[in-house]
Design a protein around this nucleic acid. Structure first.
Lengths: 339, 339
DNA sequence: ACGAGCTTCCGAAACGTTTTGGAACAGGAG
DNA sequence: CTCCTGTTCCAAAACGTTTCGGAAGCTCGT
């Protein structure tokens, strides 16, 4: 590995001059700069980013903490799409990505803040965290480490967040069902520790209220965003509330489970039950029946998150909150109420 | 940020002692060690990994280069599963992951080797690269940077690779079709720059030969692993070789395109055409018809790749090549030849 | 001929660690 | 008492950069 010293010796100038020449400072003669540049290329010199970081205190690296990076998470590609978005924008802005995992074992010993401090990342993007994750609270409130949260509402000088309009998305889903004539509409929600669950529930309530349908808490089930949870919720709905003819689910994955439960009991969607999901995962368009769902653009969320974070890092003054719109995709898991 | 100096001052000892105490050396009194440890906890001291790396020359970081991390790649989650596997094992081994992207724009200016050198990663895992990628050649042959390649055959003291038995997998797929009575079997392959394409083609030929079916080069199409490529290939097959009753495709994604082509021309699988795919992506089990396919465990591949790399880094002497098995999953896109 | 102002260069300090090669001191053997 | 062996600590160098504060040499107007 050739260092700046080797280069200085070879070029017969000081390391200061090398550094300033290669970094485009104006106080070095154009001829020497050229000479140094070609010499650097010849010798395959690459500045050592570690040494540089030590003095500049910047790493041009952003930490990404995604809870869904594990065997389970591969079922839907939400986390992956987010990551792709983050990555694409990061590359464009010439940042690298350091992937932190939140292995449960490790969570106990090291907080996110510690991870970030140790590795000197400039900022972080967090996604898939529970609302009351103690380490999240720490990083947001105790330290004022620059970070942007995905789907977790929190805002300050150093923390931004990006999300989609979940209230409106959910309302659109439920309105679609109401428009088809359904009145008995259940909801399969995620879990209480997710902000999106709260919002989607609110959207559900709002749409019902607007249509003059009373809200019945008994009709909302929690499926934990898991396929299995959807299965059990649908089972519950069919047995405990046979009058229900339509379901709004807070994730497509849970719809897959719900469809299995329906089938198990000899029913089909949309004949027995209209279902609208959330996310528009890849499977949604291909499964049987293809799912009516609310599409959210996770890629864009990641992309925007990276942009926002870098804006903050480079102290451009921009809004700290970004809300993207979602879109109702009508396919064949919903149908007009028959009879 | 409290540094080792602050800590030394506060504890009334030298920074040497702090360093050695915290790193578990034996030449520091147990009492002082305890005292330093508690003081460090109180002050929230975290050793600066950047400074440490500068002197140790180790970063405990592995670079991951996946070409599929972009908007396109999100369609199938192969890259994601690989990443999850890498990540899980890396966490267990206490390594972090630096994600490099191979944005085409950037590819021109910086080679993988340069990226790795600059950022001082200890080693790298590369996946999704073309067989004759010039930067790949560089990193494998010119430098002897420790790396493991996924699905690219190359081996040396510092480069390992993990793959699946593509020859056998392809042969299993084709044998399945032959077992169902098919004799006119076309293949939709990926592209020539992928090692797996060559292997799968060989498996296809082997299975045909074993059954005494002559190999006809006209019957192998290239679909570039893309959905659209599968669509066009199937179109070609139906028009140019109507006698074909079965197809082996080198990826499930291409099967999705192929199914669309079939449908467009008023046909269905498996009635008109039996199809077996490759990968067993998430959609495969849910689409219509559910796909018969060869499952490969990308998660395991990532996991093993990480393990192999770290073995190499910590100079444990292990084999440089890992081949995982694949598995035929029979669903409903294949059926006995009728008539 | 002189100082002012530019251009072009450089020495040395700094960043926060690890590690090398001892130093200081104690206790025990001779 | 002396020498040796451990135990416990420390000063200083090193890692590869960036950057601060100048310094040398040149040009130019007066």
């Amino acid at each position: 590995m050739t260092t700046i010293k080797d280069l200085a010796k070879a070029a017969g100038v000081s390391i200061t001059t090398i550094s300033r020449a290669l970094n485009g400072y104006s106080d070095v003669n154009e001829k020497t700069r050229k000479r140094i540049q070609t010499l650097a290329d010849e010798m395959g010199y690459r500045p050592n980013a570690v040494a540089r970081s030590l003095v500049t205190k910047k790493t041009r690296t952003i930490g990404v903490i995604l809870s869904e990076i594990n065997r389970e998470g591969a079922k839907d590609s939400l986390a992956f799409e987010t990551l792709c978005g983050i990555n694409d924008r990061a590359v464009e802005l010439d940042y690298d990505i350091l992937l932190f995992s939140t292995n449960p074992k490790k969570q106990l010993s090291k907080s996110y803040a510690d991870l970030c401090k140790e590795r000197n990342v400039d900022g972080a993007i967090l996604s898939g965290l529970r609302l009351h994750d103690p380490y999240l609270e720490e990083v947001v409130h105790k330290t004022n480490f620059p970070c942007v949260l995905i789907d977790i509402p929190a805002e300050s000088r150093n923390v931004g967040h990006v999300t989609t309009d979940n209230v409106r998305g959910a309302a659109a889903a439920v309105n679609h069902l109401i428009g088809l004539g359904h009145r008995r509409i259940a909801m399969i929600n995620g879990h209480d520790e997710a902000a999106v669950s709260q919002d989607r529930l609110e959207g559900y309530k709002l749409a019902l209220a607007a249509a003059g349908i009373p809200f019945d808490p008994q009709l909302v089930y929690n499926g934990g965003f898991k396929e299995e949870g959807g299965f059990e919720a649908m089972y519950g709905i069919l047995y405990q509330h046979p009058e229900v003819t339509a379901v709004f689910s807070a994730s497509d994955l849970m719809v897959l489970g719900a469809l299995r439960a329906l089938e198990r009991l000899g029913h089909r969607a949309p004949e027995r039950m209209s279902i609208v999901g959330y996310d528009d995962i890849a499977i949604a368009a291909h499964c049987s029946p293809p799912l009516t769902t609310i599409r959210q653009d996770r890629y864009a969320m990641g992309y925007q998150a990276a942009q926002l974070l870098v804006d903050m890092l480079e102290s451009r003054d921009v809004g700290r909150k970004i809300t993207l719109q979602s879109e109702l995709i009508v396919r064949q898991s919903t149908a007009p109420l028959s009879g």
